[in-house]
């Protein structure tokens, strides 16, 4: 058991627990807060995997901006809790069953069919270079320049769309 492994197991436990918490909380605010924790634990995984830039982006964008937006909307709408009504009684058992089936398939894939990367020999130890922000920037602005720019347009469109959707029509009453 290396330190890495121990750290991984703890963090995995945390992330699964917080995900479960998010799922099971009746209050939406709690769910959001659990999710923030979950995102933070995943950010640590990124660090472990040598992706510091992604980890920072995860913290700032996800755990910061997006989750703040969620909380903001929850508070705004005052919709922390829903009434207890059962419209689709068989939905939950079916969902659980399917989820179990998916887990079983994944397990089969990972364990019985062996690790997909087993046959692939990783290149020589160049771990250090992978995490360098400079390399990431070079790839992003050379090889992936067009998708990058398209992403900026996408964000712009999303911004406009959000404004249009939430903006009150002229003459519309609350």
């Amino acid at each position: 058991m290396t330190v890495d492994l121990i750290l991984f197991l703890i963090l995995a436990l945390v992330s699964v627990a917080t995900a479960a918490g998010m799922l099971l909380s009746r209050n939406a605010v709690y769910s959001a807060l659990f999710l923030v924790l979950n995102f933070a634990s995943i950010a640590v995984f990124y660090l472990l995997l040598g992706a510091p830039f992604i980890a920072m982006a995860q913290i700032t964008v996800y755990a910061g901006a997006i989750m703040v937006l969620f909380l903001f909307v929850i508070m705004l709408l005052g919709a922390e809790q829903l009434a207890r009504i059962k419209v689709l009684p068989w939905q939950r058992p079916l969902a659980i069953g399917l989820a179990a089936a998916l887990v079983a398939e994944t397990a089969y894939l990972l364990i019985v069919r062996a690790a997909p990367s087993a046959g692939i020999v990783p290149p020589a130890e160049t771990v250090n270079t992978l995490g360098e922000l400079q390399n990431l920037g070079m790839a992003l602005f050379n090889q992936y320049l067009l998708p990058f720019e398209v992403t900026s347009v996408l964000l712009l469109v999303a911004m406009i769309g959000a404004i249009v959707l939430t903006k009150r029509e002229k003459g519309e009453r609350e």
Binding site: L88, Q91, L98, A99, A101, L102, L109
Partner: peptide, 20 residues
């Protein structure tokens, strides 16, 4: 909507099962 999502997942499970 959730029922539709359920059928999507069912599709995923079935396709994955078929591939496996």
């Amino acid at each position: 909507v959730r029922s539709y999502a359920l059928s999507v997942l069912l599709g995923v499970v079935l396709i994955l099962g078929y591939l496996l």
